[in-house]
Design a protein around this nucleic acid. Structure first.
Lengths: 348, 348
DNA sequence: TTGTAGGCGTTATCAT
DNA sequence: ATGATAACGCCTACAA
């Protein structure tokens, strides 16, 4: 009705009409097929531009079975996804890298679908592939994960294991990172070193515990169960763990904590109880998020390559999407120990 | 081909067949229409569950013209979206609240579409509404924003103005927040107070500058242009601004900085130049992100209601999507001055 | 209460 | 080089 602007509904049909060609010719011209005359193509492109026409991605997705959308599953509010500074940067990298290859991101958010699974949700939305960024969910939703592994949907996870023909994962070297951290404490003269882990159910958790054990072993230090606590990456968990540890085992002089967020809470808790870091106790964290550098004392921690994790994960997913037979090897990224002021030589 | 599991393609047709009814009956049964017998409905639902059937959202979107997806436009890498801790929490809130009303989030990421606009991208994907979380883009992409305002697409922006029948926005009270911060400095005895703004082009920037000016005015202090600097919320910008200010105007004893991230850099820069906070200079930031509390000295700052911004924005967008005639009033949320250790009484 | 048929906007196949 | 036409999976008149 409106002859001024190319607004409102503009379908391929109107473009065809305005350009005086058939619908299929428009499609071919716009999609860069070769079997269309220069002249026609030019005219079609002009009309399309003039009326500000872009093909409807929904209709296209229906027939092509490809949406150029990548799905993103997060864990719960506290532990991952948008709310964890560590994963935020991974996601940010994913967004940028996925964008470079012409894809958008679909964040699965709908919480009214109790019966749905990762697989059914992915199929409903028709995403070309998915990222899994979870934490405790890997234990809680084991069945869903198995289903997804077998679904044939290209899938990459961060910091936990996924196995299947069309799955792979990118992780940090949690073993080495933890071992380096604990060895650092040992070199500073610490012998009673505690371990506060996030969880013990996934590969990452196990790797970290093993890194801790092996560091002790190599230094000829005995492994003592009473020095080990787990909590689900929550503030309260960290606090309780610190207290429990301190009540259960005295003369602890060093603590490895599985995340910077928890490490900071541990330091607060110790301080409340009259123990100062690093003069009384040394603390080393994990992740190297922004607060680590700024907190007081500045945190000694294990840096994960956040951007690279996201970049590589995206590269892997892209490859799997583009080639059905490709299954990139799971990859482990090195961590780097960043020494700041929360660790010090043991007092003599 | 596979008679064991309900995997692979399951369309409404197969369900209809298995249930011994027509396609339309399945559709009606699953969508809770009343004109279908209890018996039939039950059978259909059973078959659907058994074969793990969920209607394809793409096909559905095509015919219904509703995707239950909400689009999200971010600014560039540095300033907003996933990379700014302040906006991350807003986005997190959006995700949760949108999820409650049964919608998923589409993050526009594709960077190979130079010719596209917010409007064309939104129409292509068929999102039901969009959020705009920008910063400097509001200046750079003015035309696109105008187009979007007129497009009829429900749209809510955060911390900047949007006008149109189907647009609204949620902002912080940037004027009052800034005024409170500067007044706080004045009460501490400061008279030479500088202002480092993020930008001056949007309403938020202007409001903050006005808050600064009015605080001075009410205290009978003169406004001095040489005490005002702008930078685009970048680390380098903050650093340069601090240096410029210090070289241009001596005896500054207080600085208002438009974001915590910049405030922290300003403090670093001053320290490098032999000026200590708060003993030599008081600094107050904006946002109250996580580092503010932990940084050294802990930052006095203006807290924005991040979760509430996201929640309210989502509520507004939901309303506009559900009711074409609804246009929620733009809303301004109060800020709270959080006093910590980066501000102190002026030395006598 | 149920089935039939048309259409949502696009691409792909097959003619021409 | 171009044009009909049949999908893609679903919903919704309309008819029965």
């Amino acid at each position: 009705m409106n002859q001024q602007d190319g607004d409102e509904k503009m379908s391929i049909r109107e473009i065809a009409q305005k350009a005086g060609v058939s619908v299929s010719t428009v499609s071919r011209a716009l999609n860069g097929y070769s079997d269309v005359s220069m002249e026609t193509r030019k005219r079609v492109m002009e009309v399309a531009r003039e009326f500000n026409y872009f093909p409807n991605a929904i209709a296209r997705g229906l027939v092509l079975r490809k949406t150029h959308m990548i799905g993103l599953f997060f864990g719960d509010r506290i532990n991952s996804g948008f709310d964890d500074p560590m994963y935020q940067e991974v996601i940010s990298a994913i967004r940028i890298e996925a964008g470079k290859s012409g894809r958008d991101l679909l964040i699965f958010a709908n919480s009214n679908k109790e019966l749905s699974t990762y697989t059914s949700l992915s199929k409903e939305r028709g995403v070309d592939g998915v990222f899994l960024i979870l934490n405790r969910e890997e234990k809680l939703k084991k069945d869903q994960i198995r289903e997804l592994e077998k679904s044939g949907i290209p899938c990459v996870s961060i910091n936990f294991q996924l196995q299947g023909d069309r799955c792979t994962y990118v992780e940090s070297n949690n073993y080495q990172g933890t071992k380096d951290a604990v060895t650092h404490l040992i070199r500073l003269g610490h012998k009673r070193i505690a371990f506060i882990g996030g969880d013990i159910y996934g590969k990452a958790g196990v790797d970290r515990l093993n890194g801790y054990k092996d560091a002790l072993l190599e230094a000829g230090l005995a492994y003592d169960e009473r020095l080990v606590e787990f909590c689900y990456f929550t503030n309260k968990g960290a606090r309780d763990a610190a207290i429990k540890l301190q009540e259960r085992a005295d003369n602890i002089t060093g603590i490895f904590v599985a995340s910077d967020r928890m490490a900071v809470i541990v330091i607060d808790t110790l301080r409340e109880r009259g123990l100062f870091v690093p003069s009384d106790i040394s603390v080393v964290g994990f992740d190297d998020i922004a607060v680590a550098e700024r907190s007081n004392p500045a945190l000694t921690t294990v840096r994960q390559q956040r951007y690279e994790m996201g970049r590589l994960a995206t590269e892997f997913l892209n490859r799997m999407i583009d080639d059905p037979d490709c299954r990139p090897e799971p990859t482990t990224l090195q961590c780097e120990l960043v020494i700041r002021n929360s660790t010090a030589s043991i007092r003599v």
